[in-house]
Design a protein around this nucleic acid. Sequence first.
DNA 1: TGCATATATTCCGATATGGGAATACGATGC
DNA 2: GCATCGTATTCCCATATCGGAATATATGCA
Lengths: 118, 118
Amino acid sequence: MARAPTTTDAFNAIAEPRRREILDALADGERSVNDLVRILGLAQPQVSKHLRVLREVDLVTVREDGRQRLYRLNGHALKPVHDWVSKYEKTWSERFEQLDVVLDELKRQEEGADGHDK
Amino acid sequence: MARAPTTTDAFNAIAEPRRREILDALADGERSVNDLVRILGLAQPQVSKHLRVLREVDLVTVREDGRQRLYRLNGHALKPVHDWVSKYEKTWSERFEQLDVVLDELKRQEEGADGHDK
DNA sequence: TGCATATATTCCGATATGGGAATACGATGC
DNA sequence: GCATCGTATTCCCATATCGGAATATATGCA
């Protein structure tokens, strides 16, 4: 077996930085392919190819408008990524570190109040 | 050029589902390689190889203990992923949808109070 | 010293990638 | 109908991947 295709899921699709840039560019709203070409400074075929991948994993949708194709972000497809990575947020977030401190303190106080040792 | 190596960054490293499983297994605390082999049901060499990738992008750290190597999660290395994907949370989160509703309402009220039209 | 255990590395092969260049295709305007 | 614009597809190629199997390395124990 080889590496899973980029079109396997959102995790694989967003591993490519240009594709993340495309999604970032779409955050403000619909864009045509040529808009994206200008914004990213890439060759048009590469942009179309990246868009194809993003379409296949449902990260973007297309709408036809004359000879243009207007691409729109579908952020919902990022939810699995967000859900997975969020589990680890407490590892680095100061908010959670503070929470740990508070919980430890509460526990200590409770033990003291109960007269328990150790 | 080809696809960027899996060791390029956390985005590429976590595109592989087995590596996410490894990180999940390490969420509870340190594990030896053989622990992970049992937990994941993979062959030992594959686990070692995945761990190498995770090490190279700093998602795990190792500690030697006799002939064992104990791997530990370094969730902090996931922060870039979390930061990037979190920008899009508002796209699907009900919480944010509600916020939009409230903001719209406030705006309408304010306009009404000001005597503004349209 | 010798053997078993724990882990890492190497070699193999099928597969897909991403960029570049060329080209195909569909809609538009004259 | 024809040139043109906007976009998609195809071909080429150097590069990695991941799994499997075999093997290497190192530590510990008798």
